[in-house]
Computed example of a mutant assay.
Amino acid sequence: MAQTLNTGWAVDWLRRSAAVVAENRVMLIELDREIGDGDHGENLDRGFSAIVAKLDEESPATPGAAFKLAAMTLMSKVGGAAGPLYGTAFLRAATAVGDADELDSGLLSAALAAARDGVVARGKAEVGEKTMIDAWTPAVDAAAAAAANGLSPAQTLAAAASAAQSGAESTDPLIARKGRASYLGERAIGHRDPGAASSALILQAAADAAAGAGA
């Protein structure tokens, strides 16, 4: 098993993310319609489609360059909260990995933590407030533990993705404390946070890309 992931993996992750967002666009729209303004799936689909279009035109030289391309595209193409939040996440991840050609489990873990911290800095949310942080923080913790235990990049990302899915499911019974959903009070109970749901999908795409790369 390879112990690092390269630019090919990063590009594959972004392409897989676009595919899974497109596949789940209606589900994300419906989740957001229940507790938000209904545009999450549409906005993310537009943003990741634009990322794929960019990748068809240019080839990033490093994983960090791929993340930066994603960040700039999302920030320029996506309205609502999703563009700035995901854009900041990818930008912070790009900064965390720098110019590295290959990412080991430790660097991947650091990139995920930086991405989560970027979302927190921009959205000011904490765990338990029914936001995408409820998916990202368990993912970051799981990745850190996996990397510390010497697991491979694919295993590290698989652990992160599994934790993110559990985290997304944990938002179902919560009362929202941030964003438009917070206006609903107890009426938000029983509905999954759309940002947490999309975060779990995108982190699963990262794990799938790593598995495909044999890492």
Rank of each mutant, 00 (worst) to 15 (best):
L184N: 00
K68V: 03
G190S: 13
D141Q: 14
L103Q: 05
K68A: 14
A200M: 02
A61T: 11
H191W: 00
V26L: 15
S152R: 02
A197M: 10
A65M: 11
M72T: 08
P194I: 00
I35F: 01
D117K: 08
V11F: 01
T7H: 08
S109E: 02
G79N: 12
A19D: 14
R92N: 12
D193H: 03
V119Y: 02
S49R: 15
M27S: 15
A196C: 08
A188H: 06
D32H: 03
K178H: 08
R122F: 04
S105L: 06
A94H: 08
A209T: 03
V52I: 06
A159I: 04
G185A: 03
G128D: 00
A121V: 08
D104P: 14
A139T: 03
A50Q: 08
A148L: 07
E42M: 14
G118Q: 06
A215K: 05
R192Y: 03
L14A: 07
P63T: 07
T137E: 15
S59M: 14
L14K: 06
Q155P: 11
A96Y: 05
R16L: 15
V52P: 08
A94F: 09
F48K: 04
G80A: 13
G47D: 04
G47S: 07
K130L: 03
E186I: 01
T137V: 13
M132T: 08
P194N: 01
V11D: 03
P153Y: 01
G64L: 05
E30A: 06
R16E: 11
K68P: 02
V52H: 10
L203W: 04
G214H: 07
A144K: 12
S105C: 09
E34W: 07
V26Q: 15
T4H: 12
G83W: 02
T62G: 13
A196V: 03
P84S: 11
P173N: 06
H40Y: 08
D39V: 05
R25T: 12
D104T: 10
L14M: 09
V78A: 07
I133E: 00
G41M: 09
A113D: 14
F67Q: 10
W136I: 01
G83I: 02
D39Y: 11
F90L: 12
L174R: 00
M75W: 02
M27Q: 15
D99Y: 09
E30K: 10
G150D: 03
D134Y: 02
F48C: 09
S170N: 12
G190V: 08
A176G: 05
L184Q: 10
W136K: 06
G195T: 03
D208N: 11
L157C: 09
K77P: 11
I29T: 13
S166G: 15
W13G: 04
A142Y: 05
A53H: 13
A66W: 00
P173H: 05
A111R: 01
T156H: 04
L201P: 00
L44E: 08
I189R: 13
P63V: 07
G80F: 06
A164H: 03
K130R: 11
D101V: 05
Y183W: 12
A2Q: 12
R187Q: 05
M1L: 12
A144I: 04
V78Y: 04
V20K: 11
A148M: 06
A82I: 04
P194D: 01
P194V: 01
A111P: 05
R187Y: 04
V20L: 12
G214F: 02
R25K: 15
L151I: 07
V21E: 12
E57G: 13
